[in-house]
Write a protein that binds this DNA or RNA. Structure first.
Lengths: 343, 343
DNA sequence: TTGTACGCGTTATCAA
DNA sequence: TTGATAACGCGTACAA
């Protein structure tokens, strides 16, 4: 690799100190918002910084200090939409603190996951790490981070472990709310398509569905529950199976939007009209909901806010305090794919 | 912000030099693949590096040397799928060289774009930058990079400027291929929905469509060409207009998949059957194509490969040589949304 | 082919 | 409240 040469004279902290007529250390104090700097001095320095357009060299800060002013976002690929929204949320919170986000996309099942993360930590000395599913539940990764004493926040963890802070939505409650909505529309035979069993959310969402049925006193029919893998194809497949039942459901609730889109495809192919003959609902995990026909009724998970809160827990929370679990509100978005049961 | 404390003793180059029984500088030589190191020495050092699991501190390398071993990927949000695929492609190429990718998502119309990028450059001293649309065509950004002498590569530029290397697909050719495909299916009245005029690709794709018609000797009917904005809603809207014509088209070619999904929605709503009464085609820009019904016939743009090639131009190309424009092959994917014209 | 001395730009320590 | 000086971990220049 032969890269371009360094560009000419960059502005350094020394230039600022000269411009402001103070020592280097005092400039450093202002940059780091340390106490014990006279207000007049602080303003003088701030003015010089602005005048020279000075921006501290992160490499030097990291090398000299205890902080790198960078945090890492470890994410893989449930859906590009999810990953990207996570990045935006974390970035927004970081920007407020002048911290840089290092987004690191990983392949779900890379055997080098741990080694890659360790390399990241050693090379960049990030101040903290944000984990998203499914890495958020990876025991080996969590153990490694704990062993190295790296601060981390888990997004949507699948357990109740409280050794690290976390952000999440109430998956069970959200799912129960959707089933309650379908019941309120008059549906009594509701098909449910669960997601891949390796995801914690999958079980939580199924539990919420069952709970809502129980609370409404509607008998639970095991034939109406099928398991998919969160993929479009599995949604179509399981929907076809449900629609082939002797007593088919009048509504199908899929655990995510890709599977719900699959349900729509199956319905279209089989000539079952949505929403007249079949209501379809899902979770808006990949932003498909508005791009299919008819638009899906979904539970919207505010991914960007989950990310923002996670970054906030990393940047603003007291590292000494007990790890906090911060819940974020979901939203039930009703669209044209569901309707009151006719008759 | 109060971050966790640094974890205990990290392995440094000095530890490696002791372990290998050579000087620090020799270890450095091996790490940087410099010549003039005896093979035996090189192997001894490599063994020590592996044994101690040594990973050089990027901050120190950046501070001491002329390279930071990092490159930046500047991207905004045409589609999360696009951004994420870009990140994966760049990451893969970087990994091969031990370079770290800094992915920086930006909001399309942030007024602070230039300032943010300059801050990135000053803080991280990245060795190079990869630009994606629409920043890839932002004159102010390009001028700034040139002024500062920052190496950069443009993905899918809208002009023929050769001052910087670039990767791209032949949008016009791809579009012509799709129209030729529809013509081969027997369609003669083909509706075309252009994308937002501010994107260069939008014009290129429209030109390709027109060229294919001309080459086939099919008369061009201006009433069949409408302009959308690359969004789902605009696709539905323009499709409705096309289908309301006295002589409606038998096929509609939208400039991207979101608009094509909108076309499907409009067709469904109006009771026009796809593909029996209407063939629908688009460009697979956001990975929607397989999630709608029926699945869209599209031109697939290999985003990941575009990204990989861009990173390759940054990392492996001779900075002194004339900037290269590297074309990547597109693919025409025929799915259930198009069919031979009946009768 | 290998090693020594120095400096990169910032923060930490300690003194003033 | 401020400043001098020593690190931080590595690459560069030059000497051996």
């Amino acid at each position: 690799m032969a890269m371009g040469e360094k560009t000419g004279a960059r502005v350094t902290i020394r230039d600022v100190s000269r411009e402001a007529g103070v020592s280097i250390k005092t400039v450093s104090r202002v940059l780091n918002k340390e106490p014990y700097v006279r207000k007049a001095t602080r303003e003088k320095v701030a003015a010089a910084v602005a005048r020279l357009n000075f921006r501290p060299n992160l490499a030097a800060r990291s090398l000299a200090g205890r902080r790198s002013h960078q945090i890492a976002l470890i994410c893989d690929n449930p859906s590009p939409y999810y990953v990207y929204e996570m990045q935006l949320g974390v970035r927004d919170r970081c920007a407020a603190d002048g911290v840089r986000m290092i987004a690191q996309p990983y392949d779900r099942d890379s055997p080098r996951l741990i080694a890659d993360i360790e390399a990241l930590l050693d090379e960049t000395h990030v101040d903290g790490v944000i984990l998203t599913p499914p890495v958020t539940d990876d025991a080996a990764v969590l153990a490694m981070l704990a062993r190295r004493g790296v601060r981390h926040v888990r997004v949507s963890p699948g357990d109740d472990d409280t050794s690290a802070p976390a952000t999440l939505i109430d998956n069970e409650g959200a799912s129960a709310a959707m089933t309650a909505h379908l019941l309120a529309l008059g549906h009594r035979r509701i098909g449910f398509i669960a997601g891949h069993p390796s995801y914690a959310a999958s079980h939580q969402r199924q539990a919420g569905h069952a709970r809502a049925l129980a609370e409404a006193g509607v008998a639970f029919d095991p034939a109406l529950v099928r398991t998919g893998d969160y993929g479009f194809g599995s949604g179509a497949e399981q929907a076809a199976a449900l629609l082939a039942l002797a007593e088919p459901p009048t509504a199908i609730f899929a655990s995510n939007d890709e599977m719900a889109a699959g349900v729509l495809a199956a319905a279209h192919r089989l000539g079952v009209r949505v929403p007249e003959a079949l209501s379809v609902a899902g979770f808006d995990d990949s932003a498909l909901a508005g791009f299919v026909w008819p638009p899906l009724t979904t539970v919207r998970q505010p991914v960007r806010e989950l990310a923002y809160q996670a970054a906030d827990l990393l940047l603003a929370s007291d590292p000494e305090a007990d790890p906090e679990r911060r819940a974020v509100a979901y939203e039930l978005v009703v669209r044209g794919s569901t309707a009151h049961l006719a008759g």
